[in-house]
Design a protein around this nucleic acid. Structure first.
Length: 425
RNA sequence: GGAGGUGUGGCCGAGUGGACAAAGGCAACAGACUGUAAAUCUGUCGGGCUUCGCCCUACGGUGGUUCGAAUCCACCCGCCUCCA
């Protein structure tokens, strides 16, 4: 199957320049996607873009991952309602390194030269070009009228906060990136999310004017969830690709908790599963939604792809323990392993000798904001000790309650855990 | 600089001297139902305690009037609108 056809089937084509399909079918194309160094790790939202690069590479094209060491210092107004806080140069550099290493996991940087992935940093040329050269060579080819017509600019002009000249110029910088990559690598296609469409077409225009050749844009839809919650966010914040920031368990859980309405869409978006296989999963899903086969498969595929087989096993085991109930039979070491990423605290053995009130323990752990809140929680039946509901707010916790005499697992509601360890004997 | 308005709990928003830890909504949290879902229903939602009750702190800030203030007065601070 042709790559464009595949992307279309997966719902990954939101907008595309005239002729992209033909271009991809008839040529070995070099394409690029830019990533913002706003954090040291990419999150699941960016994953879609990374995967587009990977899909293209598998289809025999050459991907370039561009990290915005230069543009990150400016800030892209696209899709933003307010002016952005500027990042410091040090922070951008630090973030660059993190993102680079993540891209390396998905793309082949060692294969045959014509499809070998490349990493570039636009800071290399954006921070060195003389201002006057830039204005003459790039700025001259854009009318302010054209820039004002861009959606990203228009919406901000109507807002009260306005738009700084800095962010207004962003469009020129990204266009220039495309031009540079076109000249250096023969890059003829830029991809990204749909909010990048304006920036991308500006680049194709620039190349057309200056080099008299055609360059193309191809953008994916923004990933949305049917509940209206922003994709990639959970109560505890963004879902990162870095396991230091989002543990295997949480990563797995994020995908597992996908709603029925979105799960097939995500399988198409994010996995490399074949069309036939996805259709089979979708059929089973419709027939037996309560089994959540589609969600399980999605979570498995994604965890394996991003973190590997061992991580997947860890996540699955943690999930089984956490949602399975009884903790009594587990060894302390096993508990600590499963609850590795759960917040924990320590309790001195001496303080425990007389026992500790369960309400105090809940408040200290931070699961409850105050003792009053802890009392309410117990009364509501939402507090658990080693996965057993606490029935009495007067309950005294002693050494006996600690598994193996060392570890205690507190839980609030369905999913909020806290581990208490005994310290010193 | 002048005139007017406004400032209430995470957010929106009632409340013009006592019945106000402050209506209502949203968000959040817990429970029930379920599929670790959605929807729905129930409860909670400043802090502390010896918890069907008591105490402390709180309606921009400081002081005042009063037996009693989110509510009245003075000054200050922030925000908004109009005029210059």
């Amino acid at each position: 199957m042709k790559i464009f056809e595949d992307l279309t089937w997966r719902g990954l084509v939101h907008s595309a320049s005239e002729g992209v399909e033909k271009h991809l079918a008839e040529n070995q194309v070099t394409l690029y996607i830019g990533f913002d160094p706003t954090a040291k790790s990419l999150h699941v939202g960016s994953l879609l873009q990374i995967l587009t690069l990977a899909r293209m590479q598998r289809a025999g094209h050459r991907p370039i991952g561009l990290v915005g060491g230069g543009t990150g210092l400016i800030g892209d107004p696209s899709g933003k309602t307010a002016e952005r806080q500027l990042l410091t140069k040090e922070l951008v550099e630090k973030n660059l390194a993190g993102i680079r290493s993540q891209l390396e996991r998905f793309l082949d940087f060692d294969g045959p030269e014509e499809t070998r992935a490349q990493m570039v940093d636009n800071g290399e040329w954006l921070t060195t070009i003389p201002m006057v050269d830039f204005l003459r060579d790039v700025g001259k080819h854009f009318t302010v009228n054209y820039m004002l017509a861009k959606e990203s600019v228009k919406s901000r002009l109507e807002s009260e906060d306005g738009l700084s000249f800095t962010e207004f110029s962003y469009l020129l910088l990204q266009s220039y990136d495309f031009l540079v990559l076109h000249d250096r690598y023969g890059c003829t296609l830029q991809s990204g999310a749909s909010d990048q469409w304006g920036n991308i077409t500006a680049g194709t225009e620039l190349i057309r004017k200056l080099r008299r050749t055609k360059a193309y844009g191809l953008v994916s839809p923004l990933v949305t969830s049917s509940s209206g919650v922003k994709f990639g966010k959970t109560e505890s914040g963004a879902v990162w690709l870095d396991s230091q920031l989002t543990s295997y368990y949480r990563f797995y859980q994020f995908w597992l908790n996908t709603t029925d309405e979105d799960v097939v869409k995500y399988l198409k978006y994010f996995t490399f599963l074949s069309h036939r296989e996805i259709e089979g999963i979708a059929e089973n899903h419709d027939a037996a939604r309560h089994q959540r086969g589609a969600q399980k498969r999605l979570a498995e595929e994604m965890t394996r792809m991003v973190h590997g087989e061992t991580a997947l096993a860890t996540a699955v085991r943690s999930s089984e323990v956490l949602f399975g109930g009884e903790l009594k039979d587990l060894e302390p070491a096993e508990i600590l392993d499963v609850f590795e990423d759960v917040p924990s605290s320590e309790l001195a053995a001496d303080d425990l000798s007389a026992g500790v009130g369960v309400v105090d323990l809940l408040a200290q752990s931070g699961l409850a904001q105050s003792k009053g809140a802890a009392r309410r929680l117990v009364r509501e039946g939402g507090a658990y000790l080693n996965n057993v509901r606490i029935g009495d707010e007067q309950q005294n916790v002693t050494r006996e309650d600690f598994l193996g005499g060392r570890v205690l697992v507190l839980r609030k509601g369905r999913k909020a855990y806290h581990v208490v360890q005994v310290q010193g004997d």
